[in-house]
């Protein structure tokens, strides 16, 4: 049991959280009666997916992925020592380049010490899309409130079914 917990929950902690959040969102979307609560559910649903993507790009102990020859020299030097000399195709290139940079010239940037930026960048776009969707949905909810005088789904459906639609 402990091993199972270790393997499938502890190791994939954030994935479990994203699935739980997603299901909370979906449940609110389906089961809640109030339209604004439905929208909150929709937002939770979208945010869960953002969490999923963000955890794709994260690594323990990684830095920001910026190619900075003057920046984190200690780390770069540590990497240069550690890294496999057989990889050093770039070393040849490095001798041609001059300058005080011990980092850019000799080694290609080390992916091991960097977080993957791409999923995070994608999520910037997805957050914008989510905000836009929420904006449209809230304005439609406002229109519904103006026209039906209620945001409770059952009351609105009663008005629609009752046929006292007078416009």
């Amino acid at each position: 049991m402990a091993e199972f917990f270790q393997q499938s929950f502890h190791a994939h902690f954030n994935f479990w959280i994203y699935v739980i959040l997603m299901m909370i969102g979906l449940w609110a979307l389906i089961a809640k009666n109030n339209l604004i609560k439905k929208l909150i559910g929709m937002s939770i649903f979208q945010t869960a997916i953002i969490l999923f993507y963000v955890s794709l790009g994260v690594k323990a102990g990684a830095t920001i992925p910026i190619l900075d020859p003057y920046g984190n020299k200690e780390q770069a030097a540590a990497y240069a020592e550690e890294s496999d000399p057989a990889k050093g195709k770039n070393e040849k290139k490095g001798t041609e380049e001059k300058g005080d940079s011990s980092y850019v010239g000799k080694k290609s940037p080390n992916p091991d010490i960097m977080a993957n930026p791409l999923p995070h960048v994608l999520m910037l776009t997805a957050i914008v899309v989510g905000v836009a969707t929420l904006g449209v949905a809230l304005s439609i909810a406002q229109m519904i409130f103006k026209e039906f005088g209620s945001l409770e789904e059952d009351e609105i459906l009663e008005i629609v079914k009752g046929g006292n639609v007078d416009d």
């Binding site: 979906l26 979307l29 339209l35 439905k38 929709m42 649903f45 979208q46 969707t133 449209v136 949905a137 439609i140 909810a141 229109m143 519904i144 026209e147 039906f148 609105i156 629609v160 639609v165 416009d167």
Partner: peptide, 17 residues
């Protein structure tokens, strides 16, 4: 139409999912 607004709201929810 009032029902159009309601339909649009449902469409937003479904479409986003």
């Amino acid at each position: 139409s009032r029902r159009g607004t309601l339909a649009a709201f449902n469409y937003v929810l479904m479409g986003t999912v």
